[in-house]
Nucleic acid binder design. Structure first.
Length: 496
RNA sequence: GGCGCCAUCGUCUAAUGGUUAGGACGCUACCCUUUCAAGGUGGAAAUACGGGUUCGAUCCCCGUUGGUGCUACCA
């Protein structure tokens, strides 16, 4: 035994990596790395009914993408393998036999119907639904006879009497009375262990020193401690994390938005932003520190369980958006700084998926160059993905009344009907040699003066029609980049 | 119902016996830019309630209320 810190993330593979799970994994990872320890990944797949094809691979992919890497796990192995519970059944069988021999567990032959009936009666009497220990009273001969007769059974933990106090790293002392704790099923009738048994056996075997897990496990922690005692093992330290919440403060659920990390990946959020965001959902560097942008390296440096919050945090997307653009800008600037001559290539990489292949050919190169030029500043200024800033150059947008007509800018339908023909006429007069941003600006300002309108009443609708976007590069640069022909075509094709 | 956990701006949070209760997101006003965004300077916005302890409670204790988790042969 060594004193090295070892933590683990132990998800059950039911499909995807939940953002709440990602946060739990992150905290366990940060804690281990902060103390130069190890972080392990273990798959808890003892419930055969919930098996989902490919879920484990999916989970590992998301975790890796986030930069949460494990020192030991199903794919890279380690000294305490296998790291998949369904492959460790012999260990659980050996452990539970030891419990049976020493009287810490017993076989239970009660059927589902009997249990249901018992609970119904208990509830009718307003009692806590708990197993009545009927089978605990069976003699060894009775048990052997039932087993010999082929009766199915489960193995239950015999909960001892008395109070138990658990020392939680986040919550302090938490007391439980064993009277309120049920004789937990340890091994199901299909021979597989439940979470409680497998978890304790594995954490001990894998030499886990700190169990960092969700708050939903707090009520069953006494069962786990008693199991350690029954085995004669030293329990690990516990840290129960609060839950992530929906906007209405209920437990974060699929119903009210995206909960899978992969969905955020698909939406274009950066790895750094997601990590930074979930790290701050329930943790803070403390000491009055006001810095909020933290890289993984910095998080490891400053992480401490002492500064983890007890209350649940709402998963607030607006802040994620802000983190995302902070990180996008930071990464873009770093990349450009490292390689200033390659600015165009970096932009191109950012825009790649929105640029149709035909624009990468020589004859379209000019438009692409101009488009990239107008978009350049935006990349480091705006929270939106750069894609949204460039795709309109290559696909003519729909006319969007919601955007074109703006109360704030004092742009109404009548304004647009008045302005657009003027713009078409004026732009048409500009020759090839006159096609500069400056001249376009002069032309539009001329229209403002001529019609006696405010700048925004002319600039806003033109830009909105040309781009179809609420936010975009400036109207002069857009017209310039699009070119005379495309500009006129877009302005002419709208039907007011 | 029983048991457990939690409680500072709308949200994420800082401060902890003595502060004009601080920051960030969002919202908002103005400035900048002859448009939007971005940027700059301001603004509105919180200690759930009731009792204690104390010279003094956001902070410590008790209760109430509210929220939430568990109460499976799920994890």
């Amino acid at each position: 035994m060594n004193s090295q810190v070892r933590t683990r993330f132990a998800p059950s593979p039911t499909g995807y990596l939940h953002v709440g799970g990602a946060r739990t994994a992150l905290y366990a990872y940060l804690f281990a790395k902060k103390h130069n320890g190890q972080f392990l990944l273990r798959i808890e797949d003892t419930d055969q009914k919930r098996f989902v094809e490919g879920a484990m691979e999916n989970l590992m992919k998301s975790l890796k993408w986030l930069g949460i890497n494990w020192d030991e796990g199903p794919d890279n192995g380690g000294p305490h393998g296998p790291y998949i519970q369904s492959q460790r059944n012999d260990k659980y069988t050996a452990a539970v036999n030891q419990l049976l021999e020493n009287g810490y567990a017993y076989k239970c032959f009660c059927t589902q119907e009997e249990l249901d009936e018992m609970r119904r009666k208990q509830e009718a009497r307003h009692e806590a639904p708990m197993y009545n220990r009927k089978c605990c009273a069976l003699t060894k001969e009775e048990v052997d006879a039932k087993v010999a007769a082929g009766m199915p059974f489960v193995i239950r933990q015999k909960i001892p009497e008395g109070m138990i106090v658990i020392e939680d790293l986040i919550r302090g002392k938490v007391r439980f009375d064993s009277k309120s704790i049920d004789d937990q099923v340890l091994v199901k009738s299909d021979g597989f262990p439940t979470y409680h048994l497998a978890n304790v056996v594995d954490d001990h075997d894998m030499e886990i020193t700190h169990v960092i897990r969700g708050e939903e496990w707090l009520p069953s922690t006494p069962k786990h401690i008693w199991l350690y005692q029954a085995f004669g093992w030293t329990p690990p330290q516990y840290a129960h994390l609060s839950l992530l919440l929906n906007a209405d403060r209920s437990k974060l659920s699929k119903r009210q938005g995206d909960v899978a990390v992969e969905e955020y990946i698909q939406k274009g959020y950066t790895q750094e932003a997601i990590i930074n965001f979930i790290a701050f959902l329930g943790w803070h560097p403390g000491k009055g520190i006001e810095k909020e942008i933290y890289s993984m390296r910095e998080l490891i440096e400053d992480f401490s369980l002492d500064n983890v919050h007890k209350s649940g945090a709402i998963f607030n997307l607006e802040k994620l958006d802000w983190y995302n653009w902070q990180w996008r800008r930071r990464k873009f600037l770093e990349e450009v700084e490292a390689n200033p001559l390659n600015r165009k290539a970096i932009l191109l990489k950012e825009c790649e998926e929105y640029i149709a292949p035909e624009y990468k050919t020589a004859d379209k190169e000019a438009l692409l160059d101009r488009a990239l030029k107008t978009v350049e500043e935006k990349v480091i200024q705006d929270p939106k993905p750069v894609n949204d800033y460039i795709k309109f150059y290559f696909v003519a947008p729909q006319f969007k009344p919601d955007i074109v007509y703006s109360e704030k800018m004092k742009v109404e339908e009548a304004t647009v009907k008045q302005v657009i023909p003027e713009v078409i006429a004026t732009i048409s007069e500009l020759s090839e040699e006159q096609w500069t941003e400056e001249n376009i600006k002069v032309a539009l300002v001329g229209i403002v003066a001529k019609l006696g309108l405010k700048n925004g009443q002319v600039f806003w609708p033109v830009r909105a029609i040309l781009t179809g976007e609420q936010f975009s590069p400036g109207v002069f640069e857009v017209i310039w980049a699009l070119g005379k022909r495309e500009t006129l075509s877009r302005l002419t094709n709208i039907h007011l």
